[in-house]
């Protein structure tokens, strides 16, 4: 099976300069492989660094050590050395991320937010909106809300807009940070189905799934994230 992500020996430590250089290790020697068509669920106790690992894989967090390669347009690219324009291209075409929170320009209608990722792919505004409508409908967002900015939506509605926005432009790799956290059973089912469809088209997914039912429904295997064990937080001199 095609390898999509190959992480070896990733380590990440926060250095808090505002706290006299306090260091907070969050990842230590993490190695992980993701293949196409599979879904890996990150598990481990709260604070073990699941979210940090996901962010490191998205190049949102910088890792200090290790290698992180990713299949982009048929080539393994070293993410830790990629330039910003490369990273932008990789995120646009290869590496998707569905966060827990929707962070967008306040007054943009939900429909346009969801349609936006399709525009760089050559869709016209009308085509992108039509497809965005299908996604919102599938995720049970009532049509009367489509033209409204999601700031006024409920938490669950916002999350579904976020999922639509994160998944509408199909990417080979998808990182999911608790996509079903505030969803009811029916909508969770829709998300599970979306994930299975992504797998079926050969995408690889890494996710954090809080709720066990979802995890069991989508995960092919579990990856246990170990909390970094260091005796005491150290302080730089």
């Amino acid at each position: 099976m095609t390898v999509l992500i190959q992480a070896r020996g990733l380590s990440k430590t926060f250095v808090l300069h505002q706290q006299d250089g306090l260091t907070l290790p969050v990842l230590h020697d993490v190695s992980l492989t993701l293949h196409s068509g599979e879904c890996v669920a990150l598990c481990g106790p709260s604070g073990a660094g699941k979210s940090s690992l996901l962010k490191a894989l998205y190049a949102n967090y910088l890792v200090q050590q290790g290698s992180l390669t990713l299949l982009h347009h048929g080539q393994m690219v070293e993410l830790t050395r990629a330039t910003p324009p490369q990273l932008i291209a990789i995120r646009e075409q290869t590496l998707g991320y569905v966060s827990q929170f929707l962070r967008v320009i306040p007054r943009v209608p939900a429909l346009d937010l969801v349609a936006e990722p399709l525009l760089p792919r050559g869709y016209t505004q009308a085509e992108a909106r039509r497809e965005a409508g299908e996604w919102l409908a599938r995720l049970n967002i009532p049509e009367r809300l489509w033209q409204l900015p999601p700031a006024t939506f409920s938490g669950g509605e916002q999350q579904r807009v976020n999922i639509a926005r994160g998944m509408i432009a199909p990417r080979p790799i998808l990182l999911l940070d608790e996509p079903t956290a505030s969803l009811d059973a029916a909508n969770r089912q829709v998300v599970i189905q979306l994930i299975q469809e992504a797998k079926a088209r050969g995408a690889g997914l890494i996710g954090i799934f809080h709720d066990q039912d979802t995890r069991e429904a989508v995960a092919d295997r579990l990856y246990d994230v170990q909390a970094v064990k260091l005796p005491e937080p150290t302080t730089e001199d």
Partner: peptide, 16 residues
């Protein structure tokens, strides 16, 4: 760097 990286994982003391 990428904006989200700068804001979520600032490295320099001043950025922090």
């Amino acid at each position: 760097g990428l904006t989200d990286q700068i804001l979520d994982d600032p490295q320099h003391a001043y950025t922090q």
